[in-house]
Design a protein around this nucleic acid. Structure first.
Lengths: 234, 234
DNA sequence: TTGCGTTTTTTGTGATCACTCATTACAAGA
DNA sequence: TCTTGTAATGAGTGATCACAAAAAACGCAA
């Protein structure tokens, strides 16, 4: 029985020191697989249109098919992967129509989140968002992955302030779907001269001035600016 | 081996109610379970806050745990059920905050879908929407379930016209989450005098006049009217 | 070489078993 | 009586097996 491949894999033993350990959260294998696949998708490692089989993924992870199954089904439920009539899953290709639809939805939802979050941003959050923008500007060339992470943190700090957890989850799902393209965007960005994040500064200013509508417009503008770049390169 | 309990269970040949649902696809067991659970949730058969175990559901369905597992995980991924820290699933209770959040998101997304769909509605679709409204008005009292189905058909005919399939799916997910409350709404409706669907007629008129913005306003108004009723009864 | 029918392999789905963790019940000691 | 350690039960997770359908490989004839 090749049963106990569990202990050798993925189960990072936390030392768990007696007091004030706020988080324990033992993660399951399917969550690990889910995260790994998400990571692979976000970084553009998987080419759109390619299918993937449960067994091959399982063997490459060194585990059985069960956790992979659940992770794939979850990604399908989140519309990141699609279920072919063969019942096998694939990363959908990005048509311009699909991209436009996602962008449309994003402006609606992220506009809502931005406007709702604007008036709830604490000074600490504002400073955090400032810091993210500064980092992005200082590292304008290269290091796409880090820049993407900072950009993400900028946006979601604002969104989370809205106290609308379901909305934030939905937006996360949309970002995940658009993942490979965000990478593309960053590449295009890098080819240009040092990018100045005008929309970010607009948003920050509008938050300070307590003008939620302006914050919404800045964020929507940010999304649409990026969409224009991507759409041109599609 | 009680293996072939498959044919005896769950494969209830559905007479395929009411509208041409082109369900040709042979469904798997987990899809069946998923649909059954969805149905149970929509009709308010499951009280919010109650937890459910995989094994008990499996035995009551007369099948093994696997399909139930996948169905539950899917519903969790769609935010219809929530995953407790115990890793058991539960139907979340509806706080007023959660309800307001969903309503907020609904107005954004359904407003977008309505406005986008307005200019794409064919005469046949318009007549179909008219028919649905007529049916709802003719059967003002009683038969909540049918009325809900007609209302759903009215809305989604418009939304589907937008040619934004992902958006439609997201809205469907939101309706599913709000399912039990929609039932509540219908009950409140029935207690009142014969409801006149003002917003529906506004929308129909605006479609005929080719004024997408007005269509959006009518739909958003419809959602908010209903939300007011539900919120009062919450 | 090409086209088609057959065989073999692959792959998803579902069942069953084993394992671990969580909760509960219970009993022993303070 | 209250607390606490231990056993028992319950429940989710993952591995393995079995089966059917789809896909691929193969062989043979035109």
């Amino acid at each position: 029985m090749a049963v106990s491949s569990r202990e050798t894999q993925l189960l990072s033993e936390e030392p768990n020191s007696m007091f004030d350990v706020p988080k324990i959260s033992r993660s399951t294998l399917n969550e690990e697989v889910y995260e790994q696949l998400k990571q692979a998708l976000m970084s553009g490692k998987i080419t759109p249109g390619s299918t993937m089989t449960i067994r091959s993924l399982a063997s490459s992870f060194g585990i059985s098919v069960m956790p992979v199954r659940e992770a794939l089904r979850r990604l399908v439920a989140e519309h990141v992967l699609i279920l072919l009539p063969n019942r096998s899953v694939a990363l959908p290709v990005f048509t311009r129509q699909r991209f436009n639809e996602i962008t449309n939805i994003r402006t609606s939802l992220e506009g809502l989140a931005a406007e709702a979050g604007a008036s709830e941003v604490t000074p600490e959050m504002l400073e955090h968002m400032n810091e993210m923008t500064r980092l992005m500007e200082s590292r304008g060339i290269g290091n796409h992955t880090e820049t993407l992470a900072w950009n993400r943190e900028f946006h979601f700090t604002l969104y989370r302030a809205s106290n609308m957890p379901m909305l934030v989850k939905m937006i996360e799902s949309l970002w995940l779907q658009a993942g490979p393209l965000l990478h593309l965007q960053q590449r295009v960005f890098a080819e240009k001269k040092t990018p100045i994040y005008v929309r970010h500064h607009q948003a920050l200013r509008a938050i300070k001035d307590n003008k939620p509508t302006h914050v919404r417009n800045a964020i929507v503008g940010d999304i649409e600016d990026a969409a224009k770049i991507i759409s041109a390169a599609l």
